[in-house]
Each structure stands twice: as structure tokens, then as C-alpha cells.
Amino acid sequence: MKAIRDTLQLFMREIRISLRMPIWIIISIIQPIIWLLLFSQLFRVVGSLGTFPGGSYLGFLAPGLAIMSSLFSSAYGGMGLLRDIERGFVDRLLATPASRGALIGARVLHAAVTVMFQAAVILVISFVLGVRPGSWVLGTLIVLLSAGLLGGAFGAASNGLALLAGRYEILMALMNFTILPLTFLSTMIMARPLMPGWMQAVTRFNPVDWAVSAARDGFDGTASGTLALHFLLLLAFMAVCWLLAARAFGRYRARN
């Protein structure tokens, strides 16, 4: 089908661009090492409170940081779209019979695949640091899938906002403004029982926390009914973000 073929072609282009930036790959690998070391040192005291499933704080942190990298790298995905608009790539595409949905589709797919790669790097490094997942194969898969879903969702949202805002500065400000609250209103680096009550309540409505919880449940091998729920919620969230991006792209096309 043409829509799928076009999406794959545009996705391959994004992948080629990423792979041609060795510095990007190197940073993707070094960054999680720094995060793991930094966070585990900074929150050493937290770890000694001993409320962490799986025992060690580092083991608690690993799936959380996999989601953190997913969030941080996908949230700025819209920058690439603004660049493509500026350079006339998007207009050239629109003057071909290419599927109108392929551009956003390829960018969502690229965001998802990129963050899955970064999550995998984090898992490998945490393994080197002595972390052992409760469930090897399934756990790894679940962490990657959670990261991918959240990355796809934020990639879509970022592209949609980029189209609505139309400017790098506004997109940057919007994303900087949302990322940290979403991070701290989740169990990414802090166990739920250690949070104030109201925060615990708020986390339930935070897509980042859905991803963190799903990833951690899978990683610890304690998967239960909530895992399926979190996946469903993440899927729905991604669908909404994707729809937002597709509509924003429709608006962009109609504006000219």
C-alpha cells in the first residue's frame, strides 16, 4: 500500500540522517552512563530507605531512565520537521502524490525506534553496572515497548506543536516547560510511597508514569493486570497525539 511504502521511505531517510551523525550515536551512549552514575549517587540516601522493589536503587532507576531518555529525545522531534519545512523538503513532498499521512507517520516511527535504541543502551549499561532484571526476555521487551510507545506519542505531539507554533523557540519553550514536571510527577526516579499523597494521585494521570510503571513492572518481572492497563492507556495517548499532529499538518497545508 502506498501509504505504508511512502512512510517506510521517509522513515529510512530519517534513519540515514541519524546514522550519519556519529556524534549523536556517541552522545546517546554516553548520556545514559552519566545519568545512571549521577542519579544513583545523588539519590543514594533515597536508596537506603529500602522501599525499592528489586532491592537496589540502581535496579529501580534503570527502567525509569530508559523512559527518561525516551521522553527527552522524542520531545524535540518537531525541530526536524520545522527544519524540513524551512528547507522546502515538505513542499517538495506535497507536490508529489505521496501519501499525506506518510510524513507524520515516518516521524512518529522514527521517534519510537530511536528511543527504543536508547532504552536498549541503558539496559546494557545497567547490566554492566550489576543490575539484573527479574525477567530477562519479556522484561527487556516490555521496557523497550513502553519507551517506544511513549517516544512515539511525544514525537507526534512535538511535531504537532511544532506545526502549530511554527517556530523553534516556541517549541523549545513548550517542551522545556512540560518535560520536567512530567518527570517529577512520575515514579521515574522516586518510589511512589516516598511521594506526598497528592503527587501520588497526580501520577495516575501522567502518561510518563504509565510508561515508567509498565517498564518497571516488566523489568522486575512483577507484571500484573496494571501492565495491560498501562499499555492500553499509552496506546490511546499515542493515538491522540498522532491525531493532533495529523490535524496540525492538515491545518498547515490549508494555510498556504
Binding site: R5, Q9, I17, R92, A95
Partner: peptide, 30 residues
């Protein structure tokens, strides 16, 4: 769109790709 070729006022080649890749992608989309 299938019947025309469009060359915009501002060059719109993908500078982060090779010439061959630019042409191939354009071909796939057509």
C-alpha cells in the same frame, strides 16, 4: 501531482543526503 514536475524558487534538495538518495526518494514517492 503525478503529471507534473515542480522545482521551487528556493532550492529544496535534502542537503543531508547524497544526490543519488535525493533522486531515489523522489522516485519512490512518484
Amino acid at each position: 501531482r503525478r503529471r507534473i514536475g515542480y522545482v521551487a524558487q528556493e532550492s529544496s534538495v535534502d542537503i543531508q543526503a547524497t544526490g543519488r538518495e535525493n533522486l531515489a526518494l523522489q522516485g519512490h514517492l512518484q
